[in-house]
Each structure stands twice: as C-alpha cells, then as structure tokens.
Amino acid sequence: METNLCVAGFGGQGVMTLGKFLASATCDSTDKNVTFFPSYGAEQRGGTANCYVVISDDMIGAPLGDVMDDLIVMNGPSLNKFIVTLKPGGRLFINSSIVKDKIERTDVEIVEAPVTELALEMGNAKVLNVIMLGVYVGYTEVVAPEIVWGTVEHKLGSKPKLLPLNKAAFDKGLEIGRAARK
C-alpha cells in the first residue's frame, strides 16, 4: 500500500509545513517508509510552492510520483496545474475560500474546506495549513489523527503560546474531514 500526496499552493501558505508535519508523524510513530520532497522556485512568498509526501509499506522509489492518490490544493493555479496528476478515484482537497473554479473531473472524490476563512475567523490567517492537515487526516486516516497532532505539538514545542490555537485549528479540520467521509 502506497499513498502519494501532493500539497500545492502559494508560498507562505504553509504548504511545506503541512507536508512535513504529516511525513514526520509517519516517521516518528509508524514502521512505514515515508519521504518528503519540496519543490519551489527561488521566491519565499507569493510564488507557487508544492511538496510531495509518499507513505508506503514497501520501499519508496521516487519521492515524487507522476500519479497522485491525493491532492491538496490551496489556490487556483495549483488546481489547474496538478488536477491532471490525480488518479481516477483519487481524493482532492480544496481550499474553497479561494479556489472557485468548477471541478470538471467527475471521477475523483472532492472534499471542500474554506480554510482561509476559517483561519481568519480563528484570528490567525497562518493556521490555514493546520486546518487543512486536520481535514486531510480526518478524511483519509492515512496516519492516526492523535499521532499527527502529537508531532505538531512536538514541533511547536518552543512556542507553547501557539498550541491552543493550532489544536483548535487541527480539531476544526478533523471535524470537517470526518463529516465529509460520511
């Protein structure tokens, strides 16, 4: 069993961090093989950024596949660029706050979450990636939600002030992801 995930969005949306949280959680708490591979241009903010996470019971070939099982898109350009890589029956997670395009494909599962708006409602635009991480984990359970949260908690260890906000963000995402499963 191998899961290929691509997370794509604007630089600054926390796309890399989302991928790293998920991959680190897999490394820390399972026996599975896992890789994280970042891909971005020279810019830090405003350009496009995407990363690949592969989680597998077997050895992993390329840390970036041609065909994605799962795709998280945080902005419009990412949807247009990566939708073709999603396999039939694949799972598409959309930041519906800013991705307004109609999805032409009917052969994929679609989970929509307005993570930009939700983050703003929570008082910090930066947690949109943690909400989306919750959505993804809640929907797919590729790694147990407690394990993923444990890793986020550990990584934020030096900034304990941020924990309650991130926990609320993660839980909000989980709720949306789990509800979408039903």
Partner: peptide, 9 residues
C-alpha cells in the same frame, strides 16, 4: 539534488 532536498527516516 533529490537526495539533497528530500527528507527520509
């Protein structure tokens, strides 16, 4: 460059 930038256990 893949080995340089990828993360793995």
């Amino acid at each position: 460059g893949v080995i340089a930038t990828m993360m793995e256990p």
